[in-house]
């Protein structure tokens, strides 16, 4: 059992939780993730990226968006509640070394897994340019933390409520056109964002790492549900990744695979919504 130590709502549907997990806190490296399951009997297993860890305090921080059945349920958990199952750290850690200048691009919730990578890259002596994107100002996360690490920070919002009114690819292109160009780009966010970041860096031949968040069951190579096509070859995100060469990933295939259970999940969410509705009505009846 892993107890939730603290919880903070970062925006409408984005939550940050600090969870007791001493072994994971001391072993995890940037780029790795955990799998959670809220109840052992019927719960589903979903991967969540690790945004931060406190080895001394024995806790990890996860940031998630309440979009599916499990993340929605988790968002209703409170400090003191426990997750029945939490396993990790999984996946290969980010390859960190002194590359020179590293352009780190985070979109939406993707800024969370990007944060430990930025920390690692900074510690290794790299010059860090961070580009953060969100739909609007309210959805920007970890801005203060990133600002403390980045040598240069660029914010983009779709509506211009903070920073540039642009997609992250616009400043990324501008940075790639600089002389000298960045030695490495790291892009984490929605698949379509990663796809276009990779397309942006490709003509400049800037090596680009992306971190994929696919459907998983076990997270240890056993099921193959997370497989993606990279350079024409099948790779498993859980044991071969989660980071891959963005110029080789078949994003279109990946995006389709992510929708495999969409119809069923929509149904589940609809049922959850109806349940909540029924409970509300029942409470109203009780109250009168």
């Amino acid at each position: 059992m892993n107890r939730i130590i603290s919880k903070k709502q970062l925006s409408d549907d984005v939550f940050m939780m600090r969870i007791e997990a001493p072994l994971i806190a001391s072993e995890r490296r940037p780029g790795q993730f955990v799998i959670i399951q809220l109840d052992t009997k019927y719960g589903e297993r979903i991967p969540l990226t690790i945004a931060d860890a406190d080895p001394a305090g024995g806790s990890i921080t996860v940031i998630f968006q309440a979009v599916g059945a499990t993340t929605s349920r988790l968002s209703k958990f409170n400090p003191g509640d426990s997750l029945e199952n939490l396993v990790g750290p999984l996946g290969r850690p980010t390859h960190i070394e002194k590359f020179g200048t590293v352009a780190c691009v985070g979109g939406g919730i993707g800024v969370a897994p990007l944060y430990p990578i930025v920390q690692g890259m900074k510690e290794a002596g790299n010059r860090i340019i961070v580009i953060m994107g969100a739909r609007n100002r309210a959805l920007l996360i970890l801005e203060k933390e990133m600002r403390a690490l980045a040598d240069e920070l660029i914010i983009c919002t779709d509506d211009g409520s903070s920073g540039l009114k642009a997609l992250v690819t616009a400043p990324l292109k501008e940075i790639c056109a600089r002389d000298p160009k960045p030695d490495l780009a790291v892009a984490i966010g929605p698949p379509v964002m990663m796809k276009f970041c990779a397309e942006t860096t490709r003509p400049f031949k800037v090596p680009t790492v992306v971190s994929l968040n696919t459907i998983m069951v076990d997270g240890t190579g056993m099921c193959g549900g997370c497989r993606v096509t990279v350079g024409g070859k099948t790779r498993f995100v859980c044991v071969d990744g989660p980071e891959f060469d963005g110029h080789l990933v078949d994003f279109d295939n990946m995006m389709k695979r992510l929708k495999a259970y969409k119809r069923q999940e929509d149904n589940a969410r609809e049922i959850c919504r109806l349940d909540a509705e029924i409970i509300k009505q029942a409470q109203r009846v009780k109250g009168t």
Binding site: Y42, G43, T70, Q264, A268
Partner: peptide, 8 residues
């Protein structure tokens, strides 16, 4: 009961 989906 199960929250894990299986393909239809």
């Amino acid at each position: 009961h199960a929250q894990t989906p299986i393909y239809n």
